[in-house]
Design a protein around this nucleic acid. Structure first.
Lengths: 224, 224
DNA sequence: GTAAAACTAGACGCCATTGTCTAAGAGGTC
DNA sequence: GACCTCTTAGACAATGGCGTCTAGTTTTAC
């Protein structure tokens, strides 16, 4: 009965979710029509209503689906944060490239950002979840990872949360304009943007080479 | 005939524009209804159709109105960019506070950002104009202003455009999350965010003091 | 005061969309 | 082949918004 019929159903469900994500992202919730979603998904309109009772249910399902994918990807990228300090600039640059490419500048990232800004006030719980598991998690995790580097004496950081936010901000500095209107950066642009970001970040936070010998430089100025 | 009737008409027009900006910003173009705009503006629906032929005309008028205000404000803020290098940290911090408060975190800034992201692909010319006179202008102008500081030997910058983008990115690093979901930062938060941004920017770009003179390595002045 | 212009309130037709319903087809298992 | 479930295409009522029109009221100009 159920069980093997599931494959077909599952395929339909995914097809619908993908199509709906596409249309919702382009049109926004209000302007997106079920008919268009059905057409894009190559599925009858009734099938959509069978799986998801109404438009809003579908919308919530789409968001959760995209969020799950994005969270998994973010976790995966974060787990490859450089651990040792030789070649820190190159390693951090590669990390930023992966972060931008797979989390912030890809389809899902664009969708979630757009969505939160447009429908965030109307669906607060949805936004809350994104905030905690998306960028919130990113900042928290990065903060811990930077702390690890600082503990090794590679970086000098007074406020890890601030540094984490600045790291992300710098990583996006060159791409923000492009991603804002939907452009997808090339590999070369990603590389260059990441290099710029990391250089500036390291200039600001890198442990300066011990000038006098065992001088502990820069006693981590006051945290705000 | 015309001329003095303008006052009443003009008041109505502005009232409509304000109300429409409010509703369009909250609901998005598709979900915004003329009836609601009329109600918010305390004006009959027909009056709206008298002034602006149809919904899209009204929308374009609103965007242009907000853009003009925002451009004027941006110009005003930019013209107060610090010129001399004594007290650079404090002066830059005050500048960033003004920039964030009056250009990026205020109603108009929020509206334009939201708008571009939601309707930008549907109204490309509108977006183009914003891009040139809004953030595009900001980056270009900042780039020139930073060059002026660099020429005085205060800052060491290899790529002014990159530095300008990073300056803006850092200025927003701590506020992005908040402004994303519509929150308006308090004065204290603005101050702190600006201070963090400027400190990191200066650590990365400030001319290092001559090393072998009376050098404390990098005073990174902690001021309050 | 009078005439013209602007504003209001409401009714109206039109169209797109949502969500339901029905009859028929496709695909699988027993 | 019989049966069951999922799917499809299309018809359907209901809703709501847009834009027009009309009749009546207020404001402004002279």
């Amino acid at each position: 009965m159920t069980g093997h019929t599931q494959r077909g159903q599952c395929a339909k469900r995914m097809s619908i979710l993908d199509a709906a994500a596409d249309v919702f992202c382009r049109q926004g919730f209000a302007a997106a029509s079920i008919d268009e979603i059905a057409a894009v998904a190559c599925v009858s309109r009734q099938t959509i209503y069978n799986h998801y009772r109404e438009k809003e249910t579908l919308f919530v399902a789409v968001v959760e689906d995209v969020m799950n994918r994005a969270n998994a990807m973010l976790f995966s990228v974060l787990s490859a944060f450089p651990d040792n300090a030789d070649n820190l600039e190159d390693d951090l640059t590669a990390f930023v490239v992966r972060l931008n490419k797979n989390c912030l500048c890809n389809h899902d990232g664009k969708f979630l950002r757009k969505l939160v800004q447009t429908e965030g006030e109307r669906y607060p719980h949805l936004f809350e979840s994104w905030r905690q598991h998306g960028p919130g998690k990113l900042t928290t995790a990065l903060s811990a990872l930077l702390a690890r580097l600082a503990q090794k004496g590679t970086l000098v950081i007074d406020d890890f949360d601030v540094a984490a936010r600045q790291f992300v901000a710098l990583a996006n500095a060159d791409l923000q304009m492009m991603t804002l209107f939907g452009g997808i950066p090339t590999d070369a642009e990603l590389e260059k943007a990441a290099r710029n970001a990391v250089r500036t970040f390291l200039r600001a936070y890198r442990q300066p080479p011990a000038e006098n010998a065992g001088a502990q430089p820069q006693l981590a100025a006051v945290s705000g």
